[in-house]
Design a protein around this nucleic acid. Structure first.
Lengths: 138, 138
DNA sequence: TTCATACTTGACTAAAATAGTCGGGAATCG
DNA sequence: CGATTCCCGACTATTTTAGTCAAGTATGAA
């Protein structure tokens, strides 16, 4: 139950972008430097973030990335999902009856884990990039 | 952000123990069979659970494990901690100023992750083995 | 034009964590 | 005794993580 760097870095970088960009593109070099993140790793992450429609890229000199959507409309849960950070507490596949489903008397703990997953999602889906920038995190 | 088997199996097994034991010791063979868990792996986990005071062992024929404490007093969060399931969203060491603390302007996301961790702990610390048995999980 | 900056992409990899297995022991009961 | 059951340490295969590296392509400025 640890948060990996993929999800952590993606969110950190997007928050940095939302926080420091004034409509102008920010280069990954700048973001990586400010947040102390490995540049080449960030490059990988941002390709995915662009493909998923979170950011827009501007190539060449003075280029960089800009948020493609409003900061207050981008939720943390979305980012984690887009980047492939699982957020998974059960191993039961909904399809094909894998895991504890499909057996009887088993997995007394299923609702426990499902509840945890829900709590986590609820929290992360209730917070936007803008919220983090304004420290509106409860 | 995935729950590992260590934590999952430990909780599953203890719930099974709380649910099926009538004061009598249950063998790991029985629990492992009922919950479809690898026996030798469970043995490892239960040694730790015994050392941490969650269960009492009875050796020999008709032996097995019994809960050492009341089921309603054992919280899920405790079990996960005892078994070494991290439940960790930040990487900042409290001591020695590692991580984002100690720098300035960095880790805008710190409170975000700390908040998530708190939510998770709150949830798992609010549920006991007895609650899971009675499906009193909200 | 040329050059430096920056994004783009795919392949690759070292190290750590995960999820166990295996072998041998020791205690207890029937 | 001997079957059962806990006890313990060592070992290992696989997967995941957390990146690096090489080789581009696009753009703006000098």
């Amino acid at each position: 139950m640890k948060l990996g760097t993929k999800g952590r870095y993606a969110v950190m970088a997007l928050v940095d972008l939302a926080y420091y960009s004034q409509g102008k593109p920010l280069s990954l070099t700048e973001i990586a430097g400010r947040q102390a993140l490995p540049l080449t790793y960030l490059e990988q992450l941002f390709i995915q973030l662009r493909q998923k429609g979170f950011v827009v890229s501007t190539r060449g000199h003075q280029g960089g990335y800009t948020l493609a959507r409003e900061a207050h409309s981008i939720r943390i849960a979305e980012i984690l999902e887009a980047i492939g950070e699982p957020l998974q507490t059960t191993r039961c596949k909904k399809e094909s009856g894998m895991g504890c489903l499909g057996r009887k008397g088993q997995c007394l703990t299923h609702t426990l884990w499902a509840g945890l997953e829900h709590k986590m999602y609820q929290y992360l889906n209730g917070i936007s990039l803008a919220d983090v920038c304004e420290k509106q995190v409860s």
